[in-house]
């Protein structure tokens, strides 16, 4: 038996909004400690990994490990019926379930809706993501990162991210010309969520497709801050913490010269 009760259904709505445009069908692996989701976009350029630990739930029970193949468009239809402060309960049998039940309860307990979502068969296993030493970590406001990605999309399809000393520069160019946005490591920190931290071991200079970064920023409502981890030989990691009980990490392969 798998059963998980989330007090604030809004969190599940936000998580789904942040993955559904990137990954159509995702593997939701449930064990005694957490729910993890992993999936790739159809072109295999980006990968998303979500972790939500048991402590995020008011009630969590998972007698045997179970994998739920979720079609995110179907799940999204159900969660559109939920208010942010509705309680959401997920239920599934623990041996090869072909469906998952979702129960929505209003805060005042006066309305209950229940749904059954058919599960889909996904023939891939979750990948082991290699441990990587990154050359640069940039922590910044998630809203600012969203703004930069959106603004630069007006100028080109790709963004060049350059980290050197205490700066991170985002550049894009196209027919209209060139745009550069530079953020400097904050000298003083009044509000952590508004400050910029650049932790650099080696300079990096990488180019990424803005289309994917704009999809990643759908996770902005989940956290006030975002961390970018960069290394010349590895995919970019864009991480949003889910409070103290999990994260959404997006991995994006850099572009290379044709």
């Amino acid at each position: 038996m798998f059963e998980a009760k989330l007090q604030q259904g809004g969190l599940l709505k936000k998580i789904l909004e942040s993955v559904k445009d990137l990954v159509v069908d995702g593997l939701w692996d449930c064990d005694g400690a957490a729910i993890t989701l992993q999936g790739m976009d159809s072109s295999h350029v980006a990968l998303v990994e979500m972790l939500l630990r048991a402590e995020a739930f008011e009630h969590y029970r998972c007698d045997r490990n179970v994998t739920l193949g979720m079609n995110h468009n179907h799940l999204s239809k159900i969660l559109k019926c939920a208010n942010n402060d509705d309680i959401v309960i997920l239920k599934a049998a623990d041996q090869n379930p072909d469906s998952c039940s979702l129960i929505l309860e209003s805060k005042n307990g006066e309305k209950t809706s229940d749904f059954v979502v058919s599960l889909v068969r996904i023939d891939t296993d979750q990948l082991g993501i290699p441990e990587t030493e990154y050359s640069a970590h940039v922590k910044m406001s998630s809203g600012e990162f969203q703004r930069i990605c959106r603004d630069l999309s007006q100028f080109g399809d790709a963004v060049q991210i350059t980290c050197s000393k205490q700066d991170v520069k985002f550049s894009s160019s196209g027919e209209t010309g060139k745009a550069n946005i530079t953020l400097t490591h904050s000298a003083t920190v009044d509000k952590e969520e508004e400050s910029v931290t650049v932790d650099l071991k080696e300079p990096v200079d990488l180019t990424f497709a803005l289309r994917f970064l704009n999809l990643f920023t759908k996770a902005t409502p989940i956290s006030d801050t975002v961390t970018l981890s960069l290394s010349q030989e590895a995919p970019l990691v864009v991480e949003y913490k889910i409070g103290d009980s999990g994260h959404i990490r997006y991995f994006l392969a850099p572009k290379i010269q044709e």
């Binding site: 980006a46 030989e233 995919p235 991995f251 392969a253 044709e258």
Partner: peptide, 14 residues
């Protein structure tokens, strides 16, 4: 510029 396959980068980095 072209996008790379993320799996090939992960496997190359192991």
């Amino acid at each position: 510029d072209v996008n790379q396959n993320i799996l090939s980068i992960f496997y190359n980095s192991i």
